[in-house]
Write a protein that binds this DNA or RNA. Sequence first.
DNA 1: GTGATTTGACCGAT
DNA 2: ATCGGTCAAATCAC
Length: 415
Amino acid sequence: MQDAAGGGGDIHLLLTILADGEEQARQLELGEPAGAAPATDGQSSYPGGHRRGEEYYRGVARQLQCTFTKAMAVARAIEAAAGAGAGAGASGSRGTTGAGSRSDSADESSGRTATDVLHQERQDVPKRRKGALPRWTENFRVADANLDATPDQDDGFSWRKYGQKDILGAKFPRGYYRCTYRNAQGCPATKQVQRSDTDLCVFDVTYQGVHTCHHKHRRGGNHHHPPPPPAPAPPQDLGTELLRNFNHGLKVETDDELLEPPTSAAAAALTFEQNGAYGAAGQFCFPSVPFHAGVMTTTPLPDDAFSPVKSGAQLGGGAFSPAFVSPAMSAAGSSYFSLQAHGYDYEHHQGGQFAIRGTGSSELDEVVSAATTAAVHPAAFDDPLYHDVELDPHLPLAPMFGPAASMHGHHYRNA
DNA sequence: GTGATTTGACCGAT
DNA sequence: ATCGGTCAAATCAC
């Protein structure tokens, strides 16, 4: 509604990003580690000076790539904002009745635990917080673009389809699934599956809510899937890992400057806050750099898909992964991955981009300030209680992988 | 018979 | 009024 301000700001932002890109291109040309130089460390990371240069160029090139991505995102956002207030999806509404014989809806039916939980959450936060449940998206690619190709890459959970809907502007209907054990165990997890209209091989799978069921891996069910495919990791892990990584004193590059935690995180959060003022969102990019396994734990998580630490699985070819990676995703060779939590969409592209898309409003400030606080007091990360605080553990403050990692902050308005 | 899927209708949000 | 998400009766599959 107040897109006007956002639009103007976004244009300015776009210009800023483009200026960044210009600067990065210049760096490429000069080969001079300008601001983002690994100046201070140097030798420790790159014994061979010659190799260091190579790495440097690569890094700058990736930055440049990220900058382009950001610019395009902002441009699209501007376009969308200008065009029409394309309704942002993500409505977490919950229909109550069915036809005629309703009887549940209230709250006491035994199977409504998940709903209850949601209710409770909402009562705790009177503001309407639709995206109360963490939400993230993965792209699955199937071998052939066959129309009857199954989007159902077994992710290790048992899903039950409860709806299908034609979506405006999409060629293919969207399928709605919820955890089979929703009634039995009150598991709130759901997912939406939609085939990409551009690439028939690609299915966008949006997960929402973390499995609370003691899911048993789908017993030799419909699909031939021998590999033990755990589930899309619960976002908590992302937050945990991010925060953990943060504690490792990695460097973060925010927009223009290279910073070091906690300063860096604080600055990143600050950037966010500024973005928040726009009512917009942030997009963070960081070059894909070889990361140190020490920072993360790579675990082929077993059945209990909810152990606090499981992530860092490598995508193919040495590309880094976000703080967590669902085996389902890597198995499917997905090239794209995103996550949303508490109103923010986190997106990660295999190319090394990470974006945060906010759903706007005051929530942003809350989270940002919480994040800022947390960033300044890294010790808080070790406190298991931080989960209970408003602090959103899923913030993008984390310096991702490796000392050379850098992160750019920007935002764009998401219609 | 049991459980999953299909499908039209309902509901909240925009 | 429209759209996305959900419900539940009807239907299908085992």
